[in-house]
């Protein structure tokens, strides 16, 4: 359970993790409404990465990661897609 502070580090590690184990990696968004905390979590059952989104600024980051996972997971092959 590692909370990463830097978005570029988190983002590149997530991509590496997914391409290493595309069938094992899962991604989740946790939203706690009481304090507005949004946590991203990506794990392959061995490594676990977490990133806390800023409630006011990080909508674009959430959109990027959602789009990337949806596009990659629903394609026909496991080949790397352009980032």
């Amino acid at each position: 359970m590692v909370y990463l502070e830097e978005w570029p580090v988190f983002w590149s590690t997530v991509q590496r993790m997914y391409f290493n184990k595309p069938n094992k990696t899962r991604y989740s968004v946790k939203y706690r409404s009481k304090d507005g905390k949004i946590t991203l979590k990506v794990t392959d059952d061995q490594e676990c990465l977490q990133f806390m989104l800023h409630p006011n600024q990080d909508l674009e980051k959430l959109k990027t990661i959602n789009a990337w996972f949806l596009a990659n997971m629903s394609t026909l092959s496991t080949e790397k897609s352009a980032v």
């Binding site: 990696t25 991604y27 989740s28 968004v29 009481k34 996972f69």
Partner: peptide, 12 residues
């Protein structure tokens, strides 16, 4: 909205 947590998970 006022209380509680919602999880959304994606997997291949």
């Amino acid at each position: 909205k006022d209380q509680g947590t919602v999880w959304v998970t994606m997997k291949r």
